[in-house]
């Protein structure tokens, strides 16, 4: 199953390099979102805690602009049937998930680097805690985005439905990740952040399990 999922990921990767369906949308959105925040802040000095919150706002809306492509592009091009004919549902979900995890990590690393360069107040005191929350937060974001993309792919108003459906599902993850980022900015120890870390890890496990259980029903019309 793993090699088949990897082959599907490679197909998506090559396809993305040729069509630039998601990369362009994500890159433009990152630049626009950070620029808008910069312009709106102007010469005001914003607090470190506010930068932590805004960091995840940029991540959430950037994810909404590009991560649905995993299934929406297949549906729009009419290639869903071809995939249904060559792979089991778990293979399809795994392949799409690998692609989205890599895309989320690349996208959020770029956001983090640009964000650090643009906002002086965004200084991480406990880098290890930030890195841990970043990793688990990204995994949760990728898993949720992938299953929501599968759900909305067959709907009519995909563009509207995706953020609307994603918001309540991602809310626990985003809130906890914001909290963990604030802890990392304040230099709070791992020990004091373990409750929030447990929430993020639990969220990832629950979403991953639920996604694999649900995907068969979503994939079959």
């Amino acid at each position: 199953m793993n090699s088949k999922a990897y082959s599907l990921f490679l197909k998506d990767f090559k396809s993305e390099l040729r069509t630039r369906y998601a990369i362009n949308a994500l890159a433009m959105f990152i630049i626009v979102a950070i620029s808008v925040i910069l312009f709106s802040v102007g010469n005001e000095k914003i607090s470190a805690s506010l930068t932590g919150g805004l960091f995840w706002v940029v991540i959430f809306f950037t994810a909404m602009s590009g991560l649905s492509r995993a299934f929406v592009s297949e549906e729009e091009r009419g290639t869903t049937l071809a995939l249904q004919l060559v792979a089991a549902p778990t293979t399809v979900f795994s392949g799409k998930l690998i692609f989205n995890i890599i895309l989320v990590f690349a996208m959020n690393t770029v956001i983090a680097i640009l964000y650090s360069a643009m906002f002086d107040a965004f200084v991480i005191q406990n880098f290890l805690l930030f890195l841990t929350s970043f990793v688990f937060g990204n995994i949760g974001l990728a898993v949720s985005s992938t299953i929501i993309a599968a759900i909305i792919a067959k709907a009519g108003a995909k563009g509207t439905l995706y953020p609307v459906l994603a918001f309540p599902i991602l809310l626990p993850l985003i809130l906890t990740s914001v909290q963990l980022t604030l802890f990392a900015i304040d230099g709070i120890s791992f020990e004091r952040a373990k409750f929030e870390l447990a929430i993020v890890v639990s969220y990832d496990v629950i979403m991953l399990t639920a996604s694999y259980m649900l995907f068969d029903f979503i994939w079959k019309e």
């Binding site: 197909k11 090559k14 396809s15 040729r18 069509t19 091009r77 009419g78 290639t79 049937l81 071809a82 004919l85």
Partner: peptide, 15 residues
């Protein structure tokens, strides 16, 4: 075990 052909089957045009 199945081979399937139909007018509504679409393959990847970028390949």
């Amino acid at each position: 075990h199945i081979g399937f052909v139909s007018p509504y089957l679409v393959l990847y045009e970028e390949f």
